[in-house]
Write a protein that binds this DNA or RNA. Structure first.
Lengths: 239, 239
DNA sequence: AACGCTCTGTGCGCTACCGAACGGTCGGGA
DNA sequence: TCCCGACCGTTCGGTAGCGCACAGAGCGTT
């Protein structure tokens, strides 16, 4: 819940035409997502899809040897569970709560029904999916070419964009898991960023102090993704 | 064209119900794609979509400094131009011909019309898109965690799967561009693979000598992607 | 036959990141 | 108040990949 006591809206839901939203509304449940909880397991069927309100969910691939890497991140701009309407039902990656908060839960059955109707909801979800695809593509590029520090900046900005506050609860260990690097690498990079006055952190609590400077230090990947999200999903959407 | 003189079929087109295929057929043109040609530029509108027959197209992101990385690869199992029906029209990445050959070209207008009808074609294209998403995700993971040699194996297998022969025309320089690594890195990795009798190459011509051994040396990423394609797009498709 | 271009091989110093180990510090619970 | 566990900092040797520079090798051209 936001400070107002009203849940932060989910932008996708908010962008739906009123009559569709009203049809879905009775089936939407606001549920809490706890830090570290698994929303979906790799290869598992999905009884629900989730529209994060003030929570953030990471799409994470975990390899056989336990190493992991974040594929993409979903906040109040999107939904978790695109495989449902894309037709595959499952995916090889997990969905893990990266920042605790609430999400609107909708039964897969209802979601699929509405999608099959076609029309605005279908087009909205597909545009969101394309934005997500861009994020994945850019993650691949970033993984190939950019330093841990740059990737950390990107990750912090992506997270901050999806939160109502500029403070995130996240240990360096967990960030390392998301980025698929060593915990020490994060310690070092985060140390530099704190040194430079961009962030402040202590014991699993990170505050973004100077967002502008952070945006100057990040690689181009962040802007590419953000621009594409803005293009595909403008805030005041006209379908 | 294949040896028979008949173009190698595109699997997506082949999977369409006959009446839909017949509707599209008059609008399909078999066109040659030349090595290195750009099918789409980043951010550019798309007058056509392409269903590769015996050609291969790479989705490539090129950064401001000129460095590049392959996002995914499209052969006769898919189509180039998903952004058209996903709603965004454009993407931030380029599409470059990685292996010369033919492709069926279809006007974007017709494609979009058919997609909007809904039904089997829509579902088929969305399932393909999900498979493509898996490939991108796995590329991100592979870029993070695996050696140049492993990635080269993955790349060779992905290419071989999409070609009628086991010989590919491709300089090490170009492979390096796709993988986003140095040319020398490819030279070294390819040297090891040749040493071990898995491949043979000379002056821009690579032959896969022992596919089984190649599959033993590749990282898990290849199998994950292949399995997902087979699951989502079985050869004898029943929509 | 000689040239020239493209492609491949190799060597060298450099840096970022890894793996492992360990010490310090903060904060909450008994 | 003390202690323990979670979190963070640091160090050190090892290595994969980078950037650069140049040397050979194959192949077509004139």
């Amino acid at each position: 819940m936001g400070v107002s006591g009203v849940p932060s809206p989910n932008k996708l839901l908010a962008a739906l035409p009123p009559e569709i939203y009203e049809r879905l509304q009775p089936h939407l449940d606001l549920v809490p997502l706890e830090l570290g909880a698994s929303v979906y397991e790799a290869g598992g069927k999905q009884p629900y899809v989730y529209f994060p309100a003030d929570s953030i969910v990471s799409l994470l691939y975990v390899m056989k040897d336990g190493a992991s890497a974040e594929i993409a991140v979903v906040g109040n701009e999107g939904l978790v569970g695109i495989a449902l309407f894309m037709g595959g039902e499952t995916t090889p990656s997990r969905a893990v709560v990266q920042s605790a908060g609430d999400a609107f839960r909708l039964s897969s059955k209802i979601m699929k029904q509405e999608f099959e109707y076609g029309g605005p909801l279908l087009h909205l979800l597909l545009r969101y999916t394309q934005a997500l695809i861009t994020q994945m593509a850019q993650t691949a590029v970033c993984n190939r070419h950019h330093s841990v520090e740059q990737q950390l900046c990107r990750w912090l900005l992506l997270s901050a964009d999806r939160l109502p506050t500029n403070e995130l609860t996240m240990t360096q260990e967990l960030i390392a898991n998301m980025l698929g690097v060593r915990r020490e690498g994060v310690t070092e990079a985060a140390g530099k960023l704190q040194e430079a006055g961009l962030i402040h952190y202590s014991r699993g609590r990170i505050t973004i102090v100077n967002r502008l400077k952070l945006e100057k230090r990040v690689c181009e990947c962040y802007a590419v993704v953000k621009k594409e999200f803005d293009r595909l999903l403008p805030d005041q959407i006209a379908i």
